[in-house]
Computed example of a mutant assay.
Amino acid sequence: MFVAQNIRNFVFNVDCFSKYFDVKICITGTSGFVGQNLIPSISEKEYNILSISLRDEWLQRLPAQYEAIIHLAGKAHDTKNTSSAEEYFEINTELTKQLFDQFLQSNARDFIYFSSVKSAADTVEGMLDENVDPNPQTPYGQSKRQAEEYLLNSELPAERRLFVLRPCMIHGPGNKGNLNLLYKVVSKGIPWPLAAFENRRSFLSIANLQYVIKQILQDPSIPGGVYNLADDDSLSTNELIQLIGEARDKKPALWRVSPRLIEGIAKVGDTLRLPLNSERLKKLTESYVVDNSKIKAALDINKMPVSAREGLLTTLRSF
């Protein structure tokens, strides 16, 4: 999202602003879910935050001196397919390139770019790591990947760092995404008819994301690079539904309907435009497991602070 909503500091004329505060961290996309959770987290460490909107004269908002840019702003994947491909590339690719060029002309130390695992792959066989040959299939993933390529192919001055972070599905209290929708379905007592399908998916707790960013900002010895972000463990959709039941203190209904029957219904849905079609069935039942070992090695930790189960229960209990 683009409209920058200042959470802690008033955003006004940068010359005036700089007279009173030592601006250290510039953040784009602060009105989004990640931004709203990240700013209070890093502000606790006595970082002064400047919110930057990429929609309105953003160049004028960059202060003369700052330590890092955290680039969260971007056009999210449109599941309704109403956005044009050009919108993704204009926002996710071109604005990122312009912002990075300004970073290179500054004395700032770090550029932290929030990309997506979808910049690497739309489907995953086995486990997704950073060595995969990227092959995104959607304008969203392609626009993110093109931005990555520009950043990674640019010459980076010594003593400066570029982080290309590829998070999987981020969740936490206040998040209104797909996890919230699944929670609402299960809460209505509707049986889950896809329990016969076996899959595993990775998630990312907002608490673990906050931890990673704080470590990067505090420790200049952490090397820049491309990093996947995910919780340590993946879960099946069945396990996720059981966690929803645990969060509500009610046992959910899991129906193991024949996969062939479900697939047949989905094919009918392709023609009759039913709520369940082949594409939606794939999204609900496919596996997408993300390897987070590289970022843990860079941070010199054996596991993330919050387990996948603990993080998901915290989110689910907030709904």
Rank of each mutant, 00 (worst) to 15 (best):
F2N: 00
V3T: 07
I7L: 15
I7S: 10
F12D: 10
N13G: 06
V14A: 15
F17H: 13
S18F: 02
D22L: 15
V23K: 02
K24S: 12
C26P: 08
G32A: 05
Q36K: 15
P40G: 13
S41W: 05
E44V: 08
K45H: 07
K45A: 13
K45G: 00
K45V: 05
Y47N: 04
D56C: 03
D56K: 14
D56F: 15
W58N: 00
L59F: 12
Q60G: 09
I70Y: 03
H71L: 07
H77V: 01
H77D: 02
E90G: 05
E94F: 06
T96P: 01
K97T: 09
Q98A: 07
L99H: 11
F100P: 01
F103I: 14
F103L: 03
F103T: 08
L104E: 04
R109D: 08
R109K: 14
D110A: 12
D110C: 11
D110L: 13
F111E: 06
V117Q: 03
K118R: 11
D122T: 09
D122A: 10
T123F: 14
T123I: 13
V124Y: 09
D129F: 11
N131I: 06
N131A: 14
T138D: 01
Y140C: 08
K144E: 08
Q146G: 02
Q146W: 15
A147R: 01
E148N: 09
E148D: 07
Y150V: 03
E155N: 03
L156F: 15
A158K: 13
L162G: 03
M169K: 03
M169C: 02
I170H: 00
G172Y: 03
G172A: 09
P173V: 12
K176G: 01
L179K: 03
L179W: 14
V186A: 04
S187V: 00
G189R: 08
P191D: 09
A195I: 06
F197S: 04
L204C: 10
L209R: 04
L209A: 00
Q210C: 12
V212S: 02
V212P: 05
Q215M: 14
Q215V: 02
I222T: 00
I222D: 03
G225L: 11
V226C: 13
Y227T: 01
D231K: 04
D233W: 05
L235Q: 08
L235N: 02
L240Q: 10
I241S: 00
I241V: 05
I241C: 08
Q242M: 12
L243A: 04
L243I: 00
K250E: 13
P252Q: 11
P252V: 15
W255D: 01
S258H: 07
P259C: 14
G269Q: 10
R273T: 14
L274W: 14
P275I: 06
N277S: 07
N277R: 00
S278K: 07
S278M: 07
E279M: 09
T285N: 02
D291Q: 07
D291M: 04
A297M: 10
A298Q: 01
T315E: 10
L316Y: 03
